[in-house]
Amino acid sequence: MSTELHIALVQCPLVWEDPVANRENLERIILSLSSSIDLIVLPEMFTTGFTMTPANIAREEGEKTVEWMQAMATLKNAALVGSIVFAEGEHYYNRLWFVEPDNKIASYNKRHTFTLAGEDKVYTAGENRLLINFRGFRIFPLICYDLRFPVWARNTEGYDVLIYVANWPEKRIAAWDALLKARAIENMAYVIGVNRVGTDNYGHEYVGHSAVYDVLGNTLVCSKVATVLYATLDKEHIETQREKLRFLEDRDQFSLQV
């Protein structure tokens, strides 16, 4: 089993509330990626932008996007992860999907809905965390506003990689940078943050700052423009630093109730 995980971070503009156009654009990007990639990370709500009017999106688009993710994962022999608007019964969710090349899928509903934008009034909040074992790495994916709540991301399971997919606006980008780095340091894990660029229909500007941090908080990659960023995660780096520093052994012990 390899001790490395090769990842691609897709930082791109999004077409407002247009799943077909966004899938087509992302498909062109994904098909151009190297065949050596293990994991492709897409932004939050990558088929629509951060919309508070999910009823504008045809209900079947959620399933169509999951099927598209399965097709892309199979073609590239890589996992895809990102969140979309997903309708289920009477509820809408900001739902993250982790799709593997063998068509195995898992999902996570955003726990911390963004009250400042009224997301809590439109989308149903999740209650459960998701831990993925993929190609020798334990991966813990979260969504945007979750970044502000360190208890929810607390590394009690010994995960190796913490992922945040986001639509994080330029006016608060300093918080994004600082909190991603902090999550890496306090959890002694690689942290991946993928944000979008461009402007949405509410007039919010997005400047990317997608990045990867190692377990000591060092920046491996970061960009402010539309691009694909590449990084290689090394399991030996995690194990060596945790064995040397042992900070996780001193964490406070408590139970999280939701």
Rank of each mutant, 00 (worst) to 15 (best):
M1T: 09
P13V: 11
L14D: 11
V15A: 12
V15Y: 14
V15S: 12
A21M: 10
N25W: 07
R28M: 10
L33D: 03
S34C: 07
S35N: 08
D38H: 10
L39C: 02
L39S: 04
T48S: 14
P54F: 04
E60T: 07
E61M: 15
E63F: 10
M69V: 07
T74E: 15
T74L: 14
L75M: 12
K76R: 06
K76L: 04
G82M: 00
G82F: 01
S83K: 00
I84K: 03
V85F: 07
Y92F: 13
Y92L: 09
F98A: 07
V99K: 00
E100D: 04
D102F: 00
N103M: 15
I105V: 15
S107T: 12
Y108K: 05
T113F: 05
T113S: 13
F114K: 04
V122G: 10
L131H: 14
L131N: 13
N133W: 05
R135H: 05
R138G: 05
R138I: 08
I143C: 04
I143V: 12
D146G: 11
L147C: 08
L147G: 07
R148F: 12
F149P: 05
R154Y: 13
G158F: 02
D160M: 11
Y164L: 08
V165Y: 01
A166L: 13
A166P: 04
W168H: 00
P169C: 07
E170N: 09
R172N: 15
A174K: 13
A175N: 11
A175V: 08
A178I: 12
A178P: 06
A182R: 11
A184Q: 00
A184N: 10
I185G: 00
N187R: 00
N187A: 02
M188T: 01
A189T: 07
V194Q: 04
D200A: 08
V207F: 09
G208S: 11
S210G: 06
V212D: 03
V212H: 04
V212T: 05
Y213K: 00
N218H: 15
S223P: 05
S223D: 06
V225G: 07
A226Q: 15
A226N: 12
V228N: 06
A231F: 13
T232C: 14
L233A: 04
L233I: 01
E239I: 15
Q241I: 08
E243W: 11
E243K: 10
E243Q: 14
E243P: 04
K244R: 15
K244W: 07
L245V: 13
R246Q: 01
E249S: 13
D250K: 03
R251G: 02
R251I: 10
S255H: 09
L256A: 09
